[in-house]
Design a protein around this nucleic acid. Sequence first.
DNA 1: GATGAATGAGGCTTCATTCAT
DNA 2: TATGAATGAAGCCTCATTCAT
Lengths: 180, 180, 180, 180
Amino acid sequence: MSAKSTRERILEAAKVMFAERGFDRASVEQIAKKAGVSKTLVFWYFKNKEGLIEEVVKEVAPSKIIQACKNKDLKGKELLDCIVESYYKFFSDDVNKKLAIHLLDLSLTKPQFKEMYERYCDEELVELAKRLFCKDHVEKKDVAIVRMIHGTLMCNAINSEDKSIIKDMFHEILNNTMRC
Amino acid sequence: MSAKSTRERILEAAKVMFAERGFDRASVEQIAKKAGVSKTLVFWYFKNKEGLIEEVVKEVAPSKIIQACKNKDLKGKELLDCIVESYYKFFSDDVNKKLAIHLLDLSLTKPQFKEMYERYCDEELVELAKRLFCKDHVEKKDVAIVRMIHGTLMCNAINSEDKSIIKDMFHEILNNTMRC
Amino acid sequence: MSAKSTRERILEAAKVMFAERGFDRASVEQIAKKAGVSKTLVFWYFKNKEGLIEEVVKEVAPSKIIQACKNKDLKGKELLDCIVESYYKFFSDDVNKKLAIHLLDLSLTKPQFKEMYERYCDEELVELAKRLFCKDHVEKKDVAIVRMIHGTLMCNAINSEDKSIIKDMFHEILNNTMRC
Amino acid sequence: MSAKSTRERILEAAKVMFAERGFDRASVEQIAKKAGVSKTLVFWYFKNKEGLIEEVVKEVAPSKIIQACKNKDLKGKELLDCIVESYYKFFSDDVNKKLAIHLLDLSLTKPQFKEMYERYCDEELVELAKRLFCKDHVEKKDVAIVRMIHGTLMCNAINSEDKSIIKDMFHEILNNTMRC
DNA sequence: GATGAATGAGGCTTCATTCAT
DNA sequence: TATGAATGAAGCCTCATTCAT
């Protein structure tokens, strides 16, 4: 049982417990028990509960959701479809779905997590807009659209709404905006 | 200081505190202090914290969001625009916005609130579909669309995304579905 | 609904609730609810919870248990049998049984009830000894025997032990002690 | 200050406090204070107040009262005398006396303690009957007698009634029942 | 007589965190 | 690395009691 695997066992347990019970309601003790270690050890690895939350949040950061699509060098509608699929796939995992919502909730009350979330909603989406619309320099409205796409996707993926409706809708948008 | 006004002062304080800190993090004591009453009185009026949360949740129930539109006897695109406006107006209030997110979060971990939320996503939206699409009997797909509209609107209104993009997008949808 | 009947309804409710839940665990509110009156009214009639307890205790005072036998002008074994029957009859009522135990318990921690109980175990039993043993002046040992009889009876009646065993046992005692 | 001694200090403090104030009226805080530890530590060792009560109850369980007699391999009248002495010795300790009464009281309202108490009044006494009456197989009536003896002893020991009266009385019973 | 409204005190429990080993 | 022991803060809730009407 190497140091690393212990740390990761804790992290995994934290992910599951946080998803299941929320960041506040899941106690360090419960996480430790699930990971099969002592409470104290959690603090040894992550300093405090907030540190643990931060690490968990990193693991479900939005940039991770669309990573697969980025590597495939897609653009336009194909990229869009890939993204839709990625969102749906990612949020089909109950743990991810719940963590995302808990994170959204947490970001409302704790500034440091608000920041993380913003970075996700801003930096990431500008980059995405460029590749979606095949533009080197995106305008404000382009980003707004991508933000909307992201918000829409997240909510609908989380709610498991019909994927095809979303795709159709987005295609119409791209028709009016993209250059490729 | 009539009974009713006291109860409402507590409820108002609860709304604000719950919005600001979340349902779990906001304590009954804080709410009582904000309302200028004793902790005990909160329990006198609402039995327990959960009872208080329930009352607050009722106040931000989705049916309340679109109430204005229902009274106006609108249908089709006009109704849709009204709804968009209602969502945006409702969620332009920070308290409502935050409460909605906290509720979404809460519904993940506490079944009774999950139920409330489901009723909102189901019963209410079926009714809405009828009036949106001018159909007496809506099909499964119609409801799916309205569900998507709701999810989209909520997320985007909450994120203050550009309203006009949403409207345009929705109009296109209606073009393909509605009968009026 | 005359004043008296209200008072008695409260008293009756108190008896039942105290028996069921114990003096501490039964709250004034529960008693009031059972009596169909407001909490405040209980305080109006009985000043405070302790006052209410006192009244209830009076109603189950030991002197009441053997009252029937005293009126019958019995003595010796006949009186003893009557007393045994009285104890068993009294404690066959679940409310009485439980109240007696709760009272015993209460008398351990609250001095004023301890006093009440002592009076029961002393004054009353001296009188009883005289009539049981047909003596005008009872000795210390006589009273000790009656005290033992009382304790034995109470415990055994409460536990619903076999009545005839008790009677036989007591008769043997009387054989050695009584003068009639 | 080893772990064990801390746990036992808490247990001892609990015994004393429970005896003095009753199981309900004695608060965990008071017990902790008396033990010289923090409230939380009590919960660490005993999970909750009920767990603490259970441990205390075990310590005054009836089987413990007559343990000394069992080891001595006595039977008949000698065993009986030993038991009488044990009861009187045990209940001469004020803490034990009060705990027994509080337990009796508690068993009226909390089922799990009722059970404990029943086991005491049943299992234990059957075994005792065999050795008291020198019978391999005891009849219903034998057990009834022993139950009566127990109830009588407990009540009288608790009330510090004259021991010799009890002994004499019991001897007469044995004369009629025992085989040795 | 009777009630609704209001309070302060106190109780149980959970939790994040730390310290000694 | 890892744990058991210990703590203080904070939270929910119950209760007896009082006050105004």
